[in-house]
């Protein structure tokens, strides 16, 4: 397709891929600490940063970075104090940031359309200088998020344990907050500030439908993030001949489609896992046993079997002590000599 021959499209593809890589890497730690909306809160704070940049005629990228990092540190300190709930602290940021941004834009006499560029992204107008800045930030964020993964995992999993293990918990908490702020700034031009959080959270939610380990979730979310970003950008470019489609929105829609596809698979897998998890092998003291009043240990199955239960008989096999029970119409059938016992 000749669309990709254009310089602006190539720059857009690079920016989209980098955003898709960075946002879920940081988002995984945020989701792990149950702060999934942190990215959204920081996005709102960044609005004030953008407005400040426009007002002072400096680069909005760097003023947004500065203000967002300050906001992130603030929220972490408020949370640490424990005087305000995490979600209430987030709400304070949401509204303070947005109101500050709109106020400053008004004072600066800028039209709302300039701000809009950052709220919903303007990936097709990215310059070479923007690309370099985004690349630098991506490298730093990824190096920290992957290099310090064991420490960040421990702190996000269990703060008190991490503290007694001698980790500098506050430093790591602030680090995650700053990483989140940096990736919000990276994603600002691609998906826009209002949709940043989607790219931080949705790929993680999608990945964890299929994974059972943190490592797989983190790496899976990054792959899904890149796929959604690039896929969404291409979709919007293809559609652009017929309608005005903002890439930010298609990127998020593609990410959500990914979740919609994996969710049923995930819930089927969880159902399956629950079904096949071993039955407790508790002796029925006094009740069962050969001489027990219930004789629960040996009740033979009365219904006829047209087949033998086995590895591929179609009935779910569940480990039970030293043998296997087969789930058969709500009963647990255990093979015993030539017949089946009811367990």
């Amino acid at each position: 397709m000749d669309l990709f021959a254009y310089g602006f499209m190539q720059r857009a593809l690079i920016a989209a891929a980098l955003t898709g890589l960075v946002a879920p890497a940081v988002g995984t730690y945020l989701v792990q600490r149950r702060l999934a909306l942190m990215g959204d809160g920081l996005g709102h704070v960044a609005v004030t940063g953008i407005a400040l940049g426009l007002l002072t005629n400096s680069s909005p990228l760097w003023t947004a970075m500065l203000v967002t990092v300050t906001g992130a540190v603030l929220i972490e300190l408020i949370r640490e104090r424990g005087s305000v709930n995490g979600d209430v602290a987030l709400a304070l940021l949401f509204y303070g940031g947005l109101a500050g941004g709109v106020l400053l834009t008004g004072i600066g006499g800028q039209s709302a359309s300039t701000l809009q560029e950052y709220l919903f992204g303007s990936i097709l107008t990215i310059t070479i200088a923007d690309i370099w800045a985004v690349m630098g930030l991506t490298a730093v964020v990824l190096a920290i998020a992957l290099g310090l993964a064991p420490q960040l995992f421990a702190v996000s999993q269990d703060v008190e344990f991490a503290r007694v293990a001698g980790l500098r918990v506050r430093a790591y908490n602030l680090l995650i907050a700053v990483l989140a702020a940096a990736s919000v700034t990276v994603a600002m031009r691609t998906v826009g500030l209002l949709l940043v959080s989607a790219l931080m959270v949705v790929p993680v939610a999608t990945a964890q439908q299929l994974t059972r380990s943190f490592r797989a979730t983190l790496l899976g979310a990054m792959v899904l993030g890149v796929a959604a970003s690039v896929g969404g950008l291409v979709a919007s470019a293809v559609a652009s001949s017929r309608a005005q489609v903002a890439p930010g929105s298609t990127i998020v829609i593609v990410a959500l489609l990914g979740f919609a596809v994996t969710w049923p698979i995930g819930s089927w897998l969880r159902h399956r896992r629950r079904l096949t998890s071993p039955f407790d092998d508790e002796p029925l003291d006094g009740l069962g046993g050969p001489d027990g009043p219930l004789d629960a240990a040996h009740r033979t199955v009365t219904e006829p079997h047209v087949h033998r239960h086995g590895a591929d008989c179609g009935h779910v096999a569940v480990p039970h002590g030293d043998h296997v029970d087969y789930l058969h119409d709500g009963h647990r059938h255990a093979p015993h000599e030539a017949h089946y016992d009811e367990h």
Binding site: A162, G166, T211, T217
Partner: peptide
């Protein structure tokens, strides 16, 4: 926590000391 973690990963975090 909010993200799946395997038993091995949780136990391995105890090794950080």
């Amino acid at each position: 926590s909010g993200v799946p973690a395997s038993v091995w990963e949780v136990v391995a975090s105890g090794r950080l000391t």
